[in-house]
Simulated scan of single mutants.
Amino acid sequence: MTNSRISRARWTAAIAAGAALVGVVGAGVPAAAAPAAVRAPVAGAGAPVSVPAHVAAHGHGRIDQGALRDALAGLPDDHVRGAMVRVVGRDGRWTGTAGAWTSADAPYAIGSVTKLYTGALALQLVGEGRLSLDDTVQEHLPGLLPASYAPITVGQLLSHSSGLQKPTCVRPGTPVEVVTSAVSCGTPTAPGTAVQYNGINYFVAGLVIEKVTGRPYATELRDRVLRPLGLRHTHLPADDWAWAEGGIVSTASDVTRFMQALMRGGLLRPAEQAALFRTPSIPDARFSYGGLMRTPAPGGGPVVWGKTGTNRGYTGGVFATPGLERVVVYSTLPTGKDADQELDRVLRIVGAGFKGYEERR
């Protein structure tokens, strides 16, 4: 298999891994109503778009602005109604929008990128000695999982190596109801033996955070991450049951600031910062103990760390080089007509964001 095909296969898996659990429950279960702040771009996702094709952009530095403009050109089309991309780094910055996405810093649902925030909270508690990556779910939440399940550690939850079965029976509800429904059918595999991306891991992680702190997850998120970093445009809507797994609404600039702080060590102590980039010693362990995903950038670019996310009609992500020389935040409004065409657009956008990095480092 050629490198380009390997890269495409990995990004196909990455996009699939980004779908918040609300996208797994099936067409028969409606997602929660979107907040007003994110409703307008999502409504009528499959309908014709009257917004004229355009690319609105501004930037400076040596980032490949031409490649980024080309990646957004032609939107809206039959497959993607609009897109946003923000690139920042040591050699400049660039922000662009196209199609139905008319404001570069409009709020949007970040979906499973939420998992990075949850992972950061868990690692903070580890650093404080209130939690350990080797602690088990059964210790902190007795009775949540069936008695027949083998012990599952916090580290296995965060790295998607818990062995919990795919959530084919999941139903919306409270976090406990979501987890209970998800494990009501199917059979788990042995924890710590394989990687299987599963949003239920982060529902359980959120519940562990609440049990250890004695406070709601949203409160811990606000006091430990949002307020200290000044993320004034980031919040967890009360009506989104994706919760600690995929419920956050934010903006491109806030996501950028969060990613920079997370990877620079602004949220974690040194030992936990190391765990943020450490993966389990099992085959294909591409998720770290902080939920970061390691993958080559599209088009032969550098190896980057980040996360994809899909919720409320948005598909996006954030990825960065290990030294934060380049951070790329993006989101698209796919129509749902052709997954391959939608993936092509994402690959073009993210690849353009990292284009030229290797040549100059």
Results as ranks from 00 to 15, higher is better:
residue 37 A to K: 04
residue 37 A to E: 10
residue 71 A to R: 03
residue 31 A to R: 14
residue 123 L to G: 06
residue 81 R to Q: 05
residue 104 A to V: 10
residue 76 P to E: 08
residue 51 V to L: 08
residue 133 L to P: 13
residue 149 Y to P: 02
residue 59 G to R: 00
residue 116 L to Q: 02
residue 134 D to A: 15
residue 95 T to H: 14
residue 144 L to M: 07
residue 86 R to N: 13
residue 126 V to I: 06
residue 147 A to R: 10
residue 49 V to P: 02
residue 118 T to D: 05
residue 116 L to I: 06
residue 122 A to S: 09
residue 147 A to Q: 11
residue 89 G to S: 00
residue 53 A to N: 05
residue 58 H to D: 12
residue 35 P to T: 03
residue 127 G to I: 06
residue 50 S to T: 13
residue 150 A to H: 07
residue 106 A to F: 01
residue 142 P to C: 04
residue 67 A to Q: 12
residue 34 A to G: 09
residue 38 V to H: 00
residue 121 L to H: 01
residue 154 V to P: 04
residue 52 P to T: 06
residue 140 H to D: 08
residue 84 M to L: 15
residue 79 H to A: 12
residue 143 G to S: 09
residue 81 R to I: 01
residue 88 V to S: 12
residue 71 A to L: 07
residue 49 V to Q: 05
residue 108 Y to P: 01
residue 92 G to K: 06
residue 45 A to R: 13
residue 154 V to I: 11
residue 54 H to P: 00
residue 142 P to H: 06
residue 113 V to T: 06
residue 56 A to V: 13
residue 44 G to H: 01
residue 91 D to W: 10
residue 65 Q to G: 15
residue 51 V to I: 09
residue 58 H to E: 14
residue 134 D to F: 07
residue 94 W to D: 09
residue 142 P to W: 02
residue 128 E to P: 04
residue 85 V to I: 10
residue 112 S to V: 07
residue 67 A to N: 08
residue 70 D to A: 13
residue 36 A to T: 09
residue 47 A to I: 01
residue 110 I to S: 04
residue 41 P to E: 00
residue 140 H to I: 11
residue 96 G to Q: 11
residue 73 A to E: 15
residue 139 E to K: 14
residue 31 A to H: 15
residue 102 T to F: 02
residue 94 W to R: 01
residue 122 A to C: 08
residue 90 R to S: 10
residue 117 Y to S: 02
residue 78 D to C: 13
residue 143 G to M: 04
residue 51 V to D: 08
residue 118 T to R: 03
residue 147 A to Y: 15
residue 130 R to A: 11
residue 138 Q to A: 09
residue 129 G to P: 15
residue 78 D to T: 15
residue 114 T to Q: 12
residue 122 A to F: 02
residue 65 Q to M: 14
residue 134 D to S: 15
residue 111 G to H: 02
residue 138 Q to Y: 07
residue 141 L to V: 05
residue 125 L to N: 02
residue 120 A to S: 11
residue 110 I to W: 10
residue 30 P to I: 02
residue 136 T to A: 03
residue 74 G to C: 13
